[in-house]
Nucleic acid binder design. Structure first.
Length: 285
DNA sequence: CACCAGGAAGCAT
DNA sequence: ATGCTTCATGGT
């Protein structure tokens, strides 16, 4: 068990960070967050400015939660109006975690036209069936499956993981990733728009999923994923002439360009704060 | 039973 | 380029 004390400039809210839906492999049990990152089973809790954890060292935890990123400065840079200001006050301390590219890509292929609990279920089922077993501080856990393991999976077994029509997309992506082990570093080396196009070459990865992977795994903080909630919020708050509930490709393009211009190079943080401040009780209409 | 959920592909216009 | 349909699943 390790404890670190956060510095004054390391504003951090563990609960907000892990419950906002960016990563799918954490759950809170009896005051502790338990999760799997890479091949580590981690247990962590926060008491004021102290972080206590097991299953990983301080450097790993610091890197995963990007604790050395200057969050106060980022929030100042995106704080452009009362609406985002309220979201920042409500969610201050929320950080984007640094996910692994393959897991993030596969997870967001599983996230189309569905909700977060269902994605968690799919990812957990895939890990239990195809992932490496890990002995951690909370019994046996399972790493997210390597591309090879999912590429070799038979389609019926994958469908048992409740992937539905997404099973073929995951298998195809897994086959590509196992044949091109350097796919992630090649994407990481590209400029933003080219990296985005590269991700959208995967079947099952459209604009939204690509932007999520760019933001959550590749550190492209200008990425601005537009899901149904963000579409609704942006239409109500910033672009009132947007009509309809369905987000056409042209609307998607307009929203993300607006966000990049308006919020700046950390537009992705603005997206996450707006999304998380939407309020769990808020109903559509 | 209808409707929705961190969408995207496949076609027809 | 834009619009409609379908896709599989679980929750409400």
């Amino acid at each position: 068990m390790t404890t670190i004390t956060l510095r004054h400039d390391q504003s951090f809210d563990l609960d907000g960070t892990l419950s906002c839906g960016q990563a799918f492999r954490w759950e809170k049990l009896e005051g502790w967050w338990q999760g799997v990152v890479d091949d580590r089973a981690i247990r962590i809790r926060q008491d004021a400015n102290r972080l206590t954890f097991a299953g990983a060292d301080a450097e790993f935890v610091c890197n995963y939660f990007q604790l050395d990123q200057d969050l106060p400065a980022i929030l100042t840079s995106i704080d452009r109006d009362p609406a985002i200001g309220a979201a920042i006050r409500e969610c201050r301390g929320l950080r984007l975690v640094r996910q692994q590219p393959w897991e993030c890509l596969a997870s967001y292929i599983c996230a189309t036209n569905t909700n977060i609990p269902a994605v968690k279920r799919r990812v957990t089922l895939m890990a239990e069936r195809y992932g490496k077993a890990i002995n951690g501080p909370f019994g046996t856990a399972y790493a997210f499956p390597e591309p090879e393991a999912l590429a070799a999976a038979c389609c019926a077994d994958l469908r048992d993981c409740k992937l539905g029509y997404r099973a073929d997309y995951v298998r195809e992506a897994a086959a590509f990733a196992s044949e091109h082990p350097d796919w992630a570093e090649r994407v990481a080396a590209l400029p933003f728009e080219e990296a985005r196009q590269a991700l959208m070459q995967f079947r099952g990865v459209g604009p939204k999923a690509a932007d999520c992977v760019l933001l959550f795994a590749f550190g492209f903080f200008e990425a601005f994923p537009v899901d149904v909630w963000i579409h609704r919020i942006v239409a109500e708050t910033y672009l009132p002439d947007l009509t309809g509930k369905n987000c056409t490709p042209a609307q998607y393009e307009r929203i993300r360009r607006f966000a990049r211009d308006y919020f700046g190079q950390y537009a992705g943080y603005a997206q996450e704060y707006l999304y998380c401040a939407r309020g769990p009780a808020r109903r559509p209409q």
